[in-house]
Each structure stands twice: as C-alpha cells, then as structure tokens.
Amino acid sequence: MQRAAAYRGEQDGGLCRRHRYVRAANPLAECLARYMEPEYAAGLAVWLASSACTSNGAAYSSVGARGARLLFGVNKGWRRADGLPVTPEDMSPNIAAIDEAPPGFRAPRGVQQEFAIVLADV
C-alpha cells in the first residue's frame, strides 16, 4: 500500500509518509509532514504498552508533539425544575446548557481539523 501511495505521489507531486498520502501543494500538509514520522507517535504507544501506564479503557490521540485523551461523556446539561419530562419545546431555549462543553474541550470533525488545532496551539 505504501508503494502504491508513493507511486501516486511521484505522479502528481505529493509525498508518502508512513502510509499517509500527503499532497505537497497543501500548506497544512507541508507544515505537518515532519509530524508524520513514527517517533511522534512512538512515545505514547510505548507508554500505553508499558507497566507504567495506569490508564484503562481510555483512547488517546498522538498528533504532532502532543498527546491528548479522546473524551466521550456527558456534561452537566439542563434539567427541568419541575421534574416533568423534557419536551421538544424545552430544547431550543436550553440548548446552550445542553451543548456546553468543558473548558479546553475541542471536537474536530476529522484529522485535518485536529492537525489545525495542534498547529494553532504551537
């Protein structure tokens, strides 16, 4: 697969970095090309496999020079004061509390958005 990606890259000016096809014409890809090297993911991977790792059941992201835990959970949300069932009419006026994310939480909708977050923090 890597050879096929490398061949494709040679044909249209792109690069193949460890099974990831990256077009050199993409400015974001150019900035991140060095982060595609295995040593940027190795630290987290080795730690997860080591006896020093006390984490259980968590998922992590290793992008660039950053490690981050992937979160799936619930926020405080909103509750009706009268204890009755939530109605569709309750949703719109309370959606801000229902959707509120914890401080520092980000929800990229793909790998490119996650890379953009990492670059913005540099």
Score class of each variant (00 low, 15 high):
residue 20 R to L: 07
residue 17 R to Q: 09
residue 12 D to A: 10
residue 12 D to G: 08
residue 19 H to F: 12
residue 16 C to N: 14
residue 21 Y to N: 04
residue 13 G to W: 05
residue 30 E to T: 02
residue 1 M to W: 09
residue 47 W to S: 00
residue 48 L to I: 07
residue 89 E to M: 10
residue 104 G to E: 07
residue 26 N to Y: 03
residue 5 A to V: 12
residue 28 L to Q: 09
residue 29 A to L: 01
residue 61 S to I: 07
residue 35 Y to C: 01
residue 8 R to W: 13
residue 9 G to K: 01
residue 122 V to G: 04
residue 19 H to I: 05
residue 12 D to Q: 13
residue 54 T to L: 12
residue 89 E to F: 06
residue 87 T to C: 04
residue 47 W to G: 01
residue 70 L to C: 07
residue 33 A to E: 10
residue 21 Y to P: 06
residue 111 V to A: 06
residue 93 P to I: 05
residue 62 S to L: 03
residue 66 R to H: 13
residue 44 L to P: 01
residue 95 I to E: 10
residue 106 R to I: 12
residue 47 W to E: 01
residue 116 A to G: 05
residue 67 G to V: 12
residue 76 K to T: 15
residue 75 N to W: 01
residue 8 R to N: 08
residue 96 A to E: 15
residue 62 S to M: 08
residue 79 R to M: 07
residue 88 P to I: 11
residue 57 G to F: 00
residue 95 I to D: 10
residue 48 L to S: 06
residue 35 Y to K: 00
residue 87 T to F: 02
residue 91 M to Q: 07
residue 45 A to H: 09
residue 82 D to Q: 06
residue 80 R to D: 05
residue 38 P to V: 03
residue 28 L to H: 04
residue 49 A to D: 13
residue 25 A to G: 11
residue 61 S to K: 08
residue 23 R to A: 11
residue 2 Q to T: 12
residue 80 R to P: 02
residue 51 S to P: 07
residue 110 G to E: 07
residue 103 P to G: 04
residue 91 M to T: 14
residue 120 A to I: 00
residue 10 E to K: 09
residue 24 A to D: 02
residue 80 R to V: 08
residue 32 L to F: 12
residue 75 N to Q: 08
residue 16 C to H: 02
residue 122 V to H: 05
residue 67 G to F: 06
residue 2 Q to M: 11
residue 60 Y to P: 00
residue 72 F to R: 14
residue 114 E to Q: 11
residue 93 P to D: 04
residue 31 C to K: 15
residue 74 V to G: 10
residue 79 R to F: 09
residue 18 R to I: 09
residue 42 A to F: 01
residue 60 Y to T: 01
residue 15 L to V: 11
residue 10 E to N: 13
residue 82 D to H: 08
residue 61 S to C: 10
residue 14 G to V: 03
residue 61 S to E: 12
residue 119 L to Q: 09
residue 72 F to V: 12
residue 10 E to T: 11
residue 89 E to L: 13
residue 17 R to A: 09
residue 6 A to Y: 05
residue 45 A to T: 03
residue 25 A to L: 05
residue 23 R to P: 14
residue 64 G to A: 02
residue 61 S to Y: 04
residue 57 G to K: 03
residue 54 T to R: 14
residue 5 A to L: 15
residue 28 L to M: 06
residue 81 A to M: 07
residue 39 E to M: 00
residue 21 Y to H: 12
residue 118 V to M: 01
residue 94 N to G: 08
residue 91 M to H: 06
